[in-house]
């Protein structure tokens, strides 16, 4: 299956060049942590992720066509 990963802010450094998103291919049953590992984001690092406006955790399974948003833990504003 294929999903799109969209890091926000400093996490973009895990993408090449000025890319804002990347499409990755994963086997069925893969998790959020598996997907993020493909672009070098460690599952033990501090981050939040969401799919379709819902917060998801590292062990959540991803599905074909998902748009996975990942961002630093944030407070303020």
């Amino acid at each position: 299956m294929k999903i799109t990963i969209r890091p926000i802010g400093p996490l973009r450094r895990h993408l090449e060049g000025d890319s804002k998103s990347v499409e990755v291919t994963l086997p069925d049953g893969s998790t959020v942590a598996d997907a993020l590992a493909l672009i070098g984001i460690d599952s033990e690092a501090q981050w939040n992720a969401s799919i379709g406006g819902q917060l998801v955790y590292k062990d959540a399974e991803v599905s074909d066509g998902d748009d996975l948003l990942v961002f630093s833990p944030i407070a303020g504003g």
Partner: peptide, 10 residues
């Protein structure tokens, strides 16, 4: 920079 993320998490 936090707008999208904070909508997503509620």
């Amino acid at each position: 920079g936090i707008t999208e993320g904070l909508v997503a998490v509620g």
